[in-house]
Every structure is written in structure tokens, then in C-alpha cells.
């Protein structure tokens, strides 16, 4: 239930406060978590079964996320981004989220530089993986664990 929905319903502020208490208690999502095996299957699909190599791709993430609702990540791939040699796609996978795929970015020489920054939700402490698929079909991977904590008040 969003605040906006509450607002539209024209509730009084008293009801809003009562409702807010409810939201606080239900804020933690009842997520069914995916398994790293499912994430591996998703990655195999991306790379056509080939095992991605290490190197050329950098994944920047905080080691500890203050709140799993918003974890900033940046993925950069070392590539000339020329017609002959460029990054075709970047895939970000959160292994133990209920749905492991986070986002896919489709690139071309028009980008000039293969780097994207975004913010994602992480359901729990887990390993985040970034995979780059190059124009020649090869794939590279980087991964990092992010500790997701919920403070003493649970938000």
C-alpha cells in the first residue's frame, strides 16, 4: 500500500499514522529466494553455455549496503567500442534475489564507453555477478559479495 494510494483514498492523518505503523511492520518483503543454481542457469543462457572469463569487466559495489532497497552498482568494461570490437550486452545478476536478473544493457559502438550505473534491490547478503558479452561472442564476468543489513529497528 503506497502513501499515494492512502492519499487518494482521502484518509485522515490519524488513519495515515495508524496505517504507517502497519507498513513499518510489513516492510520486509516476503521473498522467496532464488538459488545460485538458477542464477547459473540464467548466465549459461546469456553466454550460450560458455564459461565467462575473468578480467576486462569491473563491478563496483559497496561491501556493505545500508539498506537493501537501494544498492548502487557500476559496471565498466574495458573495450575500444569499435565496430570490430565492442561490448554487445551487460547483464547484472543477483544470485539470491527472488528473481536473479536485475537489468540488461544493450550497447554498441555508439556508446563510446561501456559503463553503466544504476541502483538495485538486494533481498539479502549475497554475491552479485556482472557479465559482459562481446561482439565476438566471448564473455567476461566479475562478481562481488554485498552484505545487506537491516538496522535494529528494521526500517
Amino acid at each position: 500500500m503506497s502513501d499515494r494510494a492512502l492519499g487518494r483514498a482521502g484518509l485522515t492523518r490519524r488513519q495515515i499514522l495508524i496505517g504507517t505503523a502497519g507498513i513499518g511492520l510489513m516492510a520486509m518483503p516476503r521473498w522467496v529466494q532464488a538459488t545460485p543454481a538458477e542464477a547459473a542457469a540464467a548466465i549459461a543462457k546469456i553466454t550460450g553455455g560458455a564459461k565467462p572469463a575473468a578480467g576486462r569487466i569491473t563491478l563496483r559495489l559497496p561491501q556493505i549496503a545500508e539498506n537493501g532497497n537501494s544498492v548502487q552498482f557500476a559496471v565498466a568494461v574495458d573495450s575500444p567500442m569499435s565496430e570490430a570490437d565492442h561490448v554487445k550486452s551487460i547483464h547484472v545478476i543477483a544470485e539470491e534475489n527472488p528473481f536473479p536478473q536485475v537489468a540488461t544493457f544493450y550497447l554498441s559502438p555508439a556508446n563510446g564507453k561501456a559503463e553503466v550505473t544504476m541502483r538495485m534491490r538486494l533481498a539479502k547478503t549475497q554475491t552479485v555477478r556482472a557479465i559482459a558479452v562481446m561482439s565476438n561472442g566471448s564473455a567476461y564476468e566479475a562478481q562481488q559479495e554485498v552484505k545487506v543489513t537491516i538496522g535494529g529497528c528494521g526500517g
Binding site: R13, R14, L17, T20, A21
Partner: peptide, 19 residues
């Protein structure tokens, strides 16, 4: 005031009547 609601819920206390 929304933050008050959050804190009071964490404290297992009654919310304040708004305004």
C-alpha cells in the same frame, strides 16, 4: 510525522493522532 509513526511502531507504542 511518518517517521514518528515508524519509530512508535518499533517501540510497540500507540501512534500519535496526526496533527
Amino acid at each position: 510525522q511518518r517517521q514518528f509513526g515508524n519509530c512508535l511502531a518499533s517501540m510497540k507504542a500507540k501512534p500519535l493522532a496526526a496533527d
